[in-house]
Design a protein around this nucleic acid. Structure first.
Lengths: 71, 71
DNA sequence: TTTTAATATGACAAAAATGTCATCTAATTA
DNA sequence: TAATTAGATGACATTTTTGTCATATTAAAA
């Protein structure tokens, strides 16, 4: 798996978990203390997130870190 | 868990998995195509690695990504 | 003791993430 | 229709990671 594929994968996973909660990008942004655009970049595979960003997202989505990267 | 704690945790986890294989930092560096100093920074919690860096490390250590962040 | 291997540290440039702007489209709702 | 909500995009400054130097410390081996 190359970097671009990985970025897409984690983005899709975040969309999947957010959608399961019935949340909008704004809802997730609020829950993480970040802004909508930051969420959009993550979800659309525009960035290669750091571990800490992933931890923050996992907390907001109420899943464990290793569940978030389970793909 | 704050960012500093997380950096320490992932570093300890990498040391743990590398040690289980009986590898030196140089061995891991070679397996990842990076250099010794980069491994040292990771292991000693000096950096907040990106997801792609974690994937490369997990490959070198022959564990899955979600096993690497299982802590 | 001397040499070598392993680990650690500080400095640096280049690349990339983060966070925040404005703005745009599309879909939904009043 | 008009207003609102959701999502997407490009630009930008700031911060940080990444990758690579040189070098220092410690431990092990010859």
């Amino acid at each position: 798996m190359d970097k671009e594929q990985l970025k897409k994968k984690i983005g899709q996973r975040i969309v999947e978990l957010r959608s399961q909660k019935g949340w909008s990008q704004s809802d997730l942004a609020r829950a993480t203390g970040k802004d909508r655009q930051a969420m959009e970049k993550l979800e659309n595979g525009k960035v290669n997130p750091t571990l800490y960003t992933l931890l923050e997202i996992s907390k907001a989505l109420e899943v464990s870190l290793n569940q978030l990267v389970k793909f």
